[in-house]
Nucleic acid binder design. Structure first.
Ligand code: FES
Ligand code: FES
Lengths: 143, 143
DNA sequence: TAAATAAAAGACAAAAATATCTTTTATTTA
DNA sequence: TAAATAAAAGATATTTTTGTCTTTTATTTA
């Protein structure tokens, strides 16, 4: 569904959200450990998300990653779009160069429907909210 | 959503179905042309599908690929499972090693739902049926 | 101001996915 | 039976994704 990069990105975003609710910044090592991802890999991803202003960071001692109010309001759709682009939201399920009503592929109608539901699901899932269920240990970011 | 390999596989299956309804076998070149895929790549894929008995083939002049009655009854779910495995049907949306009710990821419930709909969509889509809409030029396999 | 800390940046490596090219095998037909 | 045809098989190449390692830059604190 999503690229590995995107999966790590989402998990990291929610992890950081949980930690930064209590005003804490969180280092790359702890994040990697907390979401079970390669350390340097998630570091790159967070750099990228940082440039796109989906996460905040500070260098030096006491530094680390955190979320401001705006970032906490971001949806998973925002994260997915930033990493994987919008192929999943608008692309053809059978890989035709363009999804189109005029020249639909054999599963266009059905696919369009689930594609829309995925979009809705991701748009309604806010990073900040998801981190609350995490805090309550109702959900988890690694197995 | 699906790998390129899987997209080509599905498109080829439907293309072959259409052609083999009229008793024709169809060569790899025509298939590649008809679904806009690399010739040698789709050849490999079809070899694979052949071994798994999702498509039939014959060598030599008048040879080519075709579908028997059983293959026409195959669903896209069968094709996807043969190529991409069942990750899409049972895997965790955020890439946790296992999807589980006991230790769900933050989008488990919502994801589970759409995952189920994808499964249903693919199980209800039979290769033979899809090829009929193709025949009527209501749907297309390339842009 | 020097040392320690932590992210940013850049270079490199491995693995997987995608794509191409060549040779072999089976089958048909002239 | 020889030539032609078409898939099967095998080898190789390219690109993308994923992962690792090293150096640099910014910041804090002693
Ligand atoms: S054309 Fe394939 S999903 Fe719309
Ligand atoms: S645990 Fe992630 S989808 Fe079920």
């Amino acid at each position: 569904m999503f690229s590995k990069t995107c999966e790590y990105a989402i998990r990291a975003m929610i992890y950081i959200a949980q930690k930064s609710k209590t005003g804490n910044r969180v280092g790359i090592k702890e994040i990697a450990q907390g979401i079970d991802s390669p350390e340097h890999f998630i570091a790159k991803i967070l750099q990228d998300l940082g440039k796109k202003d989906l996460v905040q960071s500070a260098k030096g001692p006491t530094g680390g990653f955190y979320h401001d109010a705006q970032s906490l309001e971001k949806s998973l759709a925002d994260v997915v779009r930033a990493i994987d682009g919008d192929k999943i939201f608008t692309g053809c399920g059978l890989g035709l160069k363009q999804c189109s009503e005029d020249r639909p592929c054999p599963i266009h109608n059905q696919f369009k429907k689930v594609r829309g539901e995925i979009k809705l699901m991701l748009e309604n899932a806010k990073v900040g909210e998801l981190s609350e269920e995490l805090e309550q240990r109702l959900t988890f970011l690694k197995r």
